[in-house]
Design a protein around this nucleic acid. Structure first.
Lengths: 162, 162
DNA sequence: TGGATATAATTCGATATCAAATTATATAGT
DNA sequence: ACTATATAATTTGATATCGAATTATATCCA
């Protein structure tokens, strides 16, 4: 009725807005849960960096490559890396081959913290399975990945570095 | 191979992580696009508040109700409302029925800004259609909504106010 | 070789977000 | 009526994030 009409007036295609709205709320809810589960002082951003080094088996990556991998700006990456180096999770050195660049690597303390994080968030996984079955999750993730890649290509910025 | 193995080792159920990872990147990419499309000085958070009043046809809402509707904490809502009142987009008054509470309403300037925002982001909608067809989008949004509601119920906080 | 352009990283200032703690007012239970 | 508890909003201090501007180094090309 009135409310419904107001809603329909919002745009010719409210479905697309709804899609991004649901995505946003799921990200916020799951992000907050993850933050709460992580060890005191650890953040999603920092855990993501640690996990990246282990998962992909990289030895050294430049700040620019890391920023690109997570689709964040370089200033954002700089600020996170500064904090991570301060707490001993990563090591940053000048790139001997390029005077402008730096090289980041994970320290033993960083590896230990990553293991600690993995253990801390493990209990969250069973909860996810109560939300959606694995059979449903597989095609859903495939669709989202497709959308993410297409969305990525829509930008002017360089594509994801992995 | 080596990288693949490292990836598989990440957890017994990487699919759930992958799901939230894709959600997070899509939210970040789409959010940045939206922020760039909005009028100078406007933010997603502020646009969301303005849009909420128009879409749902509410006259007055408390800060607590607004925070609940967007699934953010009350301190976060407070800080956004302070800025919005400062720029004349909303009006905040004491609740005559409850000495602790306040009541927020949208101003004419707020309505105008909301219209301005809607016009500014309209060009983004056709782009979304290049990402995914409407036929695919409909069940996808339904699935996401289901997950969002279930995720919401998993928390200890009160459920969404709309 | 030298000037124009591109790239790496950073600094700065702003907003959004959270958790923890605080203040003020309501409500409930005895 | 009084105390205990609950709720509304805010303050504080931290991280993450962006855009714009800056600095330093590379690369390109004429």
């Amino acid at each position: 009725m009135a409310l419904r009409d107001a809603y329909e007036d919002m745009t010719q295609d409210p479905l697309a807005f709804e899609f991004f709205n649901e995505i946003g709320i799921i990200d916020q809810l799951s992000g907050t849960m993850l933050d709460r589960a992580l060890p005191k002082g650890m953040t999603r951003a920092q855990f993501t960096v640690l996990n990246h080094f282990i998962r992909l088996g990289h030895f050294e990556r430049s700040p620019a490559q890391l920023a690109s991998a997570f689709q964040i700006t370089r200033p954002t990456m700089t600020s996170t890396l500064v904090r991570m180096e301060r707490s001993g999770l990563i090591c940053i050195r000048a790139d001997p081959k390029d005077g402008r660049a730096k090289l980041v690597s994970i320290t033993p303390a960083g590896r230990a913290m990553r293991d600690h994080c993995i253990a801390a968030i493990a209990p969250l996984l069973p909860m996810v399975e109560t939300l959606i079955s694995k059979d449903e999750l597989l095609p859903l993730v495939a669709t989202l990945k497709h959308i993410r890649i297409a969305l990525d290509a829509l930008r002017d910025l360089p594509t994801r570095d992995i």
